[in-house]
């Protein structure tokens, strides 16, 4: 079952482009990576799902229901962590979290305490006295305390130190193991590669690719390095080879095509070492943006 669904979602801010004709589905229990550089339309997409803004055309559904018409009801089960967190500066952390909890029709006290413990959050400080990283922790706790079934994370790790990032990812994976669907927007591709099973790549407001990370890697260029004495680079110039580089007794190139043809070509010379790697998400991503 698809938990979230965008149908030809388009948003213009006056004449400025937000997103154009974006369609995709995210399935229940999935961690869906949503990647693109700043200004590509990641936040716009998330804000449309949360009805913070309204689409110019197209529609979006969550749990099969229209996210504008049923917004208030749907948001009982949605957690949201924005990239920049802002809360009522004069409030204490505990009061803000209690205020947040008061919107939900279930008791959130215990989960709130657990999360605050995990994130090592001091509940008695005022929001205005917190560092950015600590405000971010408040954001994480308030986004998760009502045990949502769907999470929107918009560049969630900005401002967290590596230790907290690890705790955070662990927390998200735990939530996911309980069946929570996660929509994970980021431009840090390493973390998306680590967390997500499927990704959507957005470029200048348009979704240009939606695929499994594995499929993306397998169907893409392989990075090949061949080391040997006295190599002739031209020998490797077979169909499917690009970016051929030759230096100091080693040849590097990208290869896309029948792997057997490549093996035969390599096998016909005496080599000292061969590595064939799948490209990282970052390299694939850069390829889309070249």
């Amino acid at each position: 079952m698809s938990v979230i669904e965008a149908n030809h979602l388009t948003k213009y801010y006056g004449k400025a482009r937000g997103i154009v004709d974006v369609s995709f589905q995210v399935n229940e229990g999935e961690i869906f990576g949503f990647i693109g550089p700043n200004g590509a339309g990641k936040s716009t997409t998330i804000r449309l799902f949360l009805s913070l803004i309204y689409p110019t055309s197209g529609s979006a559904t969550i749990f099969g229901k229209d996210c504008i018409k049923y917004g208030p009801q749907l948001r009982q089960d949605i957690g949201y962590l924005p990239s920049d967190v802002f809360y009522y500066e004069r409030m204490k952390v505990i009061d803000l979290l209690k205020y947040s909890a008061s919107f939900y029709d279930r008791d959130c006290t215990q989960r709130m305490r657990e999360l605050a413990d995990t994130m090592e959050l001091d509940l008695n400080r005022r929001i205005e006295d917190l560092s950015y990283g600590n405000k971010k922790k408040v954001g994480i706790v308030q986004g998760l305390l009502h045990q949502p079934k769907l999470l929107f994370l918009d560049e969630p790790t900005a401002g967290l130190d590596p230790l907290m990032q690890r705790k955070f990812f662990h927390l998200i994976q735990e939530e996911n193991a309980r069946g929570v669907t996660v929509f994970f927007s980021s431009h840090i591709l390493g973390e998306v590669q680590r967390m997500c099973s499927r990704v959507g790549i957005i470029k200048e407001g348009r979704m240009i690719e939606i695929a499994d990370i594995k499929t993306l890697q397998q169907n893409n260029y392989k990075k090949v390095l061949v080391e040997a004495d006295a190599l002739d680079a031209a020998h490797f110039n077979i169909p499917g080879v690009t970016n051929l580089e030759h230096s100091n007794g080693s040849v590097r190139f990208f290869y896309k095509g029948d792997i057997n043809a490549l093996m035969r070509t390599i096998g016909s010379v005496t080599v000292s070492n061969v590595t064939i790697e799948e490209p990282t998400l970052e390299e694939i991503f850069m390829h889309y943006y070249e």
């Binding site: 949360l50 913070l52 208030p72 009982q76 924005p82 809360y87 009522y88 919107f103």
Partner: peptide
């Protein structure tokens, strides 16, 4: 102006409320 609207409006309440 203080960007707290995101917090309030992503709660399960309608704008009319």
């Amino acid at each position: 102006r203080e960007w707290t609207a995101d917090f309030l409006l992503t709660k399960p309440v309608s704008r009319t409320q």
